[in-house]
Design a protein around this nucleic acid. Structure first.
Lengths: 182, 182
DNA sequence: ACCTGAACACCGTTCAAGT
DNA sequence: ACCTGAACACCGTTCAAGT
């Protein structure tokens, strides 16, 4: 990759991140990103084949934060239920302020062709670790996909309806209780 | 309303229902509806100010079905948990085959200006009835809005990801267990 | 009153032409 | 190789002109 192309790519991601953060996925047009980054539309699409692929690049840091959140929660001196609530809450917070991200990632969970496929794998892996560690405390038969979808569903509604921390915590409490129930 | 206008309105809703059912909300354009109904775009918009308002009219029967489903579930000779699962399952089924409806109604739950506001009121009312009847069996402090959002969130993910009945039932079981947990 | 359909505004994406 | 920006295809919505 040529140095000027690399510079363009980096600037695009940086500027797009600020715009998406401010206005959400649907509130930013590709033309707007191109203009703000000082490149032509073609250059934007040369680096990112779709708007969702650009969004995926913008959410890059997300992956590391997911891992850190599970580690922290599993290390807590607390009940399985409270560990779940802590991790779920951190996950929803991670998506907080990225309007449109939660629904997109959640709906991509079963789709290997999605631009978010790598993120989905990480997220599923995180919930698999939870299952491996909390094993017997959880309801039998529950799998990582189901937990990922349940928490992702709550995150998507919280995002779309602009719910406050208390409302989110309460919904996640219900899900966590349901997951530890026999 | 003039007779010809009434006829036009009815035909539009009928044809739109078939198209939305077949292709989902996003898969049908307003031009397509107008053409299929044999009217100009202006006529379509005279009867329905937005695409969502048209969708709301298409989902008219929904309201009665919601009431019937709660009645049936509450009349069951079963535990509170199983009544919840029955009603939630019926609700998700109601939206099944209307791609895009679940997410729209769920996100409209807090918004009185939404075209779906009347449906939201009915849905919230249905869950309020559930709370009134099952009262002490449910977790303290839970309200109709929270239940509506939780079940709506599951419905939206089920719709968006094309989940099967078993996957949906399992997720609803988690939510129901969480709602009856102390 | 009600209808028509061309037109507007916007947006994701492509591509011929340039350097 | 990489870039530009006009152009394409599509879509929700509006509005001047008709009956």
């Amino acid at each position: 990759m040529r140095a000027d192309a690399r510079r363009n790519r980096d600037r695009i991601v940086e500027i797009a991140r600020a715009l998406f953060k401010e206005k959400g996925f649907a509130g930013v047009s590709m033309d707007e990103v191109a203009k703000a980054a000082g490149v032509g539309a073609g250059t934007l699409y040369r680096h990112f084949p779709t708007k969702e692929a650009l969004y995926d690049a913008v959410l890059e840091a997300w992956t590391d934060k997911v891992k850190a959140a599970v580690d922290r929660a599993l290390g807590l001196d607390a009940s399985a239920r409270d560990k779940l609530v802590s991790w779920f809450g951190d996950y929803v917070d991670l998506l907080n302020g990225h309007k449109g991200a939660a629904a997109r990632i959640t709906l991509a969970l079963g789709d290997p062709a999605s631009p978010f496929a790598a993120k989905c794998t990480r997220y599923l892996g995180a919930n698999q670790r939870v299952i491996d560690e909390l094993g017997p405390a959880l309801r039998p038969g529950v799998d990582a996909m189901e937990i990922s979808r349940l928490v992702g569903a709550v995150a998507a509604v919280a995002d779309g309806s602009g719910l406050g921390p208390d409302e989110v915590a309460s919904m996640l409490g219900v899900v966590a209780d349901g997951l530890v129930a026999a």
